[in-house]
Design a protein around this nucleic acid. Structure first.
Lengths: 100, 100
DNA sequence: TCCATATTTCGATAGTCCTAGAAATATCGA
DNA sequence: TCGATATTTCTAGGACTATCGAAATATGGA
């Protein structure tokens, strides 16, 4: 995980609307949820929801798969774990240094 | 940790410049670093750096303390841990449900 | 083919954010 | 008080973002 893709990931989580969508998918587990189902739960207009889902997918936080007329979105747990671990990685590695 | 303050925290981490500043502080450990020291390491103009530090402080990700002419910034490890934990909290709690 | 369902693309508006130079403020030492 | 150091505030422009209605696209069934 490099700094740039981590920042992309955090940007994607950095709006209430998008974080709510992501968490709905995290709660749903590996089965994921279709767009229309998320929309019914959160009450976001379809075009806005598509926009946010694309942002989450571009950042690698979710994975989308088309089945029939539906698109199933799933949380990308590996990526989410990597981001969570990134926050405090290298913690205190320079503790006590006066220069550098 | 509610969704709104989590989103604020992730927004603060959602730019490369700011994430680099935060990580410099995470690496530094509890001793923290003065602004001028961060500036020397990262090469960011002072006014830009102040702007980013304020954003990080407003989101509760860092804590600033004035000592003499310097301001020491420290990572707020409790808040960072809470954000890391938030990402996957409630994971799969609705797994298997078809409605709701 | 025709219709209903599911989702995306387009387009436009309003608002927010990043960056950074210049000027201002605060602190310490001589 | 004067100067050096440390940091913030002011200001501004260009870039990016969120929102969402309307129109378009894709799929499956009758």
């Amino acid at each position: 995980m490099d700094s740039d893709s981590a920042a992309d990931g955090f940007t994607a989580m950095g709006s209430t609307a998008r974080l709510d969508v992501l968490r709905a998918l995290v709660r749903a587990g590996p089965a994921g949820r279709p767009v229309s189902d998320i929309q019914a739960t959160l009450g976001i207009p379809a075009s806005t929801l598509t926009h946010h889902l694309k942002a989450l997918a571009d950042a690698g936080l979710i994975i989308q798969e088309k089945t029939g007329r539906s698109i199933i979105s799933r949380a990308n747990y590996d990526q989410l774990e990597a981001l969570a671990a990134f926050i405090l990685s290298e913690c205190c590695s320079e503790e006590g240094r006066n220069h550098g």
